[in-house]
Amino acid sequence: MVVGRGEAVRRLPFRAADFGSIRQAAEALLMKQSIISRSIRQLEDTLGLAVFARTSGGVQATDAGRQFLRMARSMLVPRHRGFDRLIRVQQDR
């Protein structure tokens, strides 16, 4: 799937949730931890709620964060499947 930089940044909170760790997400994505942390802080500021509880062992989605991530992910997945289909059609031409 082709993902633009802005789209990739919007996905960072999902990656942190998947790994349960900002550090592990950063390592897997070959990014600085500060970029992921900043992305999460901006999301939380925008939403006006804590998406993650931070501990020395990593991050864990709060109740509100789990609800948000579930809802947001359900909206993103069909959208990206549609983009993938369009890209394949375009490449087949």
Rank of each mutant, 00 (worst) to 15 (best):
M1E: 08
V2G: 01
V2A: 10
G4T: 09
G4Q: 10
R5S: 04
G6K: 02
E7K: 12
E7H: 05
A8G: 05
V9I: 12
R10S: 11
R10E: 11
R11Y: 12
R11N: 07
L12T: 02
L12R: 03
L12A: 09
L12H: 10
P13N: 01
P13Y: 07
A16E: 09
A16G: 07
A17L: 09
D18F: 14
D18C: 11
F19A: 13
F19N: 05
S21I: 05
S21Q: 03
S21L: 03
S21E: 03
I22S: 11
I22C: 14
Q24E: 14
A25C: 10
E27T: 03
E27P: 01
E27V: 07
L29Y: 01
L29W: 00
L29D: 05
L30T: 12
L30P: 00
M31N: 02
M31I: 01
K32F: 04
K32V: 10
Q33P: 05
Q33R: 15
Q33L: 00
S34I: 07
S34Q: 13
I35K: 04
I35M: 04
I35R: 10
S37D: 04
S37H: 08
S37Y: 10
S37L: 04
R38I: 01
R38V: 05
I40W: 01
I40M: 02
E44L: 09
E44I: 01
E44C: 01
D45F: 01
D45I: 00
T46I: 04
T46K: 14
L47C: 05
L49K: 12
L49Y: 03
V51Q: 07
V51E: 03
A53S: 15
R54M: 13
T55R: 14
G57H: 07
G58N: 07
G58C: 08
Q60D: 15
Q60S: 15
A61H: 05
D63M: 02
A64Y: 13
G65K: 04
R66H: 06
R66D: 04
R66Q: 13
Q67S: 14
F68H: 00
F68T: 00
F68D: 06
L69M: 09
R70P: 04
M71H: 13
A72L: 05
R73A: 06
S74G: 03
M75T: 01
M75D: 11
M75A: 13
L76M: 08
L76Q: 10
L76E: 09
L76P: 02
P78N: 00
P78E: 04
P78L: 08
R79V: 02
R79T: 12
R81E: 15
F83C: 06
R85H: 00
L86E: 08
I87W: 03
R88M: 06
R88L: 11
V89I: 14
Q90C: 03
Q90A: 08
D92S: 15
